[in-house]
Computed example of a mutant assay.
Amino acid sequence: MLPPKLARLIDDQLQYSPRHSNAAGWRYLLPGHSPGRPRNLLGLADTLRHHGLPARAARNTAMMDALVDLPPMVIADLIGIHPKAAERWATLAGGNWSEYLAARRAAPQG
């Protein structure tokens, strides 16, 4: 479920943008420069970063939130990551904060 205002914006974009569908009939919320192709993920991340929206931080937060409600195997299947990676994320999401801070201090900055 999306907030109503966001849902309306997405519906409007899908309905009124001519570049959203390809020959197979798939529709893209974020179409690429070529008609019928999705937006490049790296280009989208750069655009978001340019506007002050940290894509990686948002992705990581969404992953942690999802792992509170769903088992790691379900998340791995839904978003296409390795089950071991989902397990590591689940450990981070469910571990205590002192372990998180220790891991954060040990991680290289950048």
Rank of each mutant, 00 (worst) to 15 (best):
L2F: 08
P4N: 05
K5N: 09
K5W: 11
L6M: 10
L6T: 12
L6Q: 07
A7F: 05
A7N: 07
R8T: 12
R8E: 14
L9R: 12
I10C: 06
D11N: 13
D11F: 15
D12Y: 06
D12T: 14
Q13V: 08
L14M: 04
L14W: 01
L14I: 02
L14H: 01
Y16Q: 07
S17C: 09
S17T: 11
P18T: 01
R19S: 08
R19M: 14
R19P: 06
H20I: 13
H20Y: 12
S21P: 04
N22Q: 00
N22M: 01
N22Y: 02
N22L: 00
G25W: 00
G25T: 00
G25F: 00
W26L: 04
W26K: 04
W26I: 03
W26P: 01
Y28R: 02
L29K: 02
P31L: 00
P31V: 00
G32F: 00
H33C: 13
S34Q: 11
G36K: 01
R37T: 07
P38R: 01
P38E: 01
P38S: 02
R39H: 15
L41R: 12
L41S: 15
L42K: 15
L42E: 14
L42Y: 10
G43Q: 05
L44H: 06
A45G: 06
L48I: 03
R49I: 05
H50Q: 15
H50K: 15
H50W: 14
H51S: 06
G52L: 03
G52Q: 04
L53C: 11
P54M: 11
P54N: 13
P54K: 10
A55D: 02
R56W: 12
A57M: 10
A57V: 15
A58G: 12
A58Y: 08
R59K: 08
R59A: 13
N60P: 08
T61M: 13
A62P: 03
A62C: 05
A62T: 05
M63K: 08
M64A: 10
M64S: 12
M64N: 05
D65A: 14
A66Q: 04
L67E: 01
L67Y: 00
V68P: 07
V68Y: 07
V68I: 14
D69T: 14
L70F: 14
L70Y: 07
P71H: 03
P72Q: 00
P72I: 00
M73Y: 15
M73G: 14
V74W: 08
V74C: 07
I75T: 03
I75F: 03
A76H: 00
D77V: 11
L78W: 10
I79W: 03
I79H: 04
I81S: 04
H82W: 04
K84L: 11
A85Y: 07
A85D: 08
A86C: 03
A86H: 01
E87M: 08
W89S: 06
A90F: 04
A90M: 03
T91K: 12
A93R: 04
G94V: 06
G94L: 11
G95C: 04
N96F: 06
N96D: 10
Y100V: 12
Y100R: 14
Y100P: 08
L101F: 09
L101A: 10
A102T: 07
A102N: 07
A102G: 05
A103N: 12
R105F: 09
A106R: 06
P108D: 03
Q109P: 10
Q109N: 09
Q109I: 11
